[in-house]
């Protein structure tokens, strides 16, 4: 049963994006547009997944999407919510560092801050009392199974604990947009559920909330995302692969009636297989 929805204003527009390191073109010709999805019965955020084999440029693209890296060509536009609406449209602006929350693939944290101190720091610009901040942090720590190591430094944490801390930091600090590079790798079943729940909570709480993530788990992407992009290398005429990542295919799961299903159906499996084919050939 397909859910009813409407596509409204553009929330993310990427145009002719490419990134070159020295002589090497890492990604090129990347362009896509995501719109605000509105459902009649409930607030609905956006979940966008990027799939692609190792080295195809997912992390590189994410650094551009978050404004951490200046693209060699092209641009990333997001709505400028500080400006007044003109002709029923929010004016756009180029994405800048800090506009979009980012959890990188290595789960980097402040090396000199304990989990608790990191989360407190992430809340530094939020205008609530210190007690309220503490309460909020404690709740999160409990829910995410981090309360016992709240006073430990990153070097004293396991990979999964670091990762959850990195995700929590961004949950507490970022605005409407959040980019996560492989948020599910290295997590146990319970932690994966934590992250999934967090995604749902973010998506349910504001219609403009947008999560962009990458993963190597195709089924998980098909289950969670309402929009999937497959990154890969194009084929040359002679059948060899170029060494430049680009978008090979876009699956709009909303349009297919597969988004927000809360269960994995035969149709989902079919998409999974299609994606696998595309990835293997790229």
């Amino acid at each position: 049963m397909a859910a009813k929805y409407e596509q409204k204003d553009t929330i993310l527009h990427v145009e002719n994006l490419s990134i070159v390191y020295g002589e090497k073109v890492i990604i090129s010709n990347i362009g896509f547009t995501e719109k605000n999805t509105v459902r009649p019965d409930k607030p609905q955020g956006q979940t966008i997944a990027f799939l692609g084999r190792s080295g195809r440029g997912k992390s590189t693209l994410f650094r551009a999407l978050t404004g951490l890296e200046e693209p060699t060509t092209g641009m990333v536009l997001i709505p400028d919510f500080e400006k007044p609406i003109v002709n029923g449209q929010q004016p756009a602006k180029k994405v800048q560092e800090g506009d979009v929350g980012f959890v990188d693939q290595k789960y980097t944290l402040f090396r000199h801050k304990t989990i608790y101190q990191s989360l407190k720091y992430a809340l530094r610009n939020v205008k609530i009392s210190s007690e309220e901040k503490d309460e909020k942090i404690i709740t999160y720590l409990k829910d995410w199974g981090l309360q016992t190591c709240r006073n430990q430094y990153p070097n004293e944490l396991s990979g999964g604990q670091r990762q959850r801390t990195a995700i929590l930091e961004q949950l507490l600090s970022s605005g409407l947009y959040m980019v996560l590079d492989e948020p599910f790798s290295g997590l146990d079943v319970g932690n994966i559920q934590n992250v999934k729940d967090a995604f749902r909570l973010i998506n349910d709480s504001h219609e403009l909330n947008t999560i962009i993530f990458s993963t190597h788990d195709i089924e998980l992407a098909v289950e969670l995302a309402d929009s999937i992009y497959v990154l890969g290398y194009l084929k040359n005429d002679d059948g060899t692969l170029t060494q430049t990542g680009t978008i090979l295919k876009h699956f709009d799961l909303k349009e297919m009636g597969l988004a927000w299903q809360h269960e994995f159906t035969a149709d989902h499996l079919d998409i999974t297989k299609q994606i696998k084919q595309i990835m293997l050939a790229s």
């Binding site: 951490l68 800090g98 980097t108 600090s173």
Partner: peptide
């Protein structure tokens, strides 16, 4: 590592805050 600077940038740190947190406090 650039990742450490980027981590601070993505947490809405201004450039001076990055200098203070990552460079000065983080490497004391």
């Amino acid at each position: 590592p650039a990742d450490e600077i980027n981590h601070a940038r993505s947490l809405k740190c201004s450039r001076w805050e990055i200098l203070w947190e990552v460079i000065i406090k983080g490497r004391l």
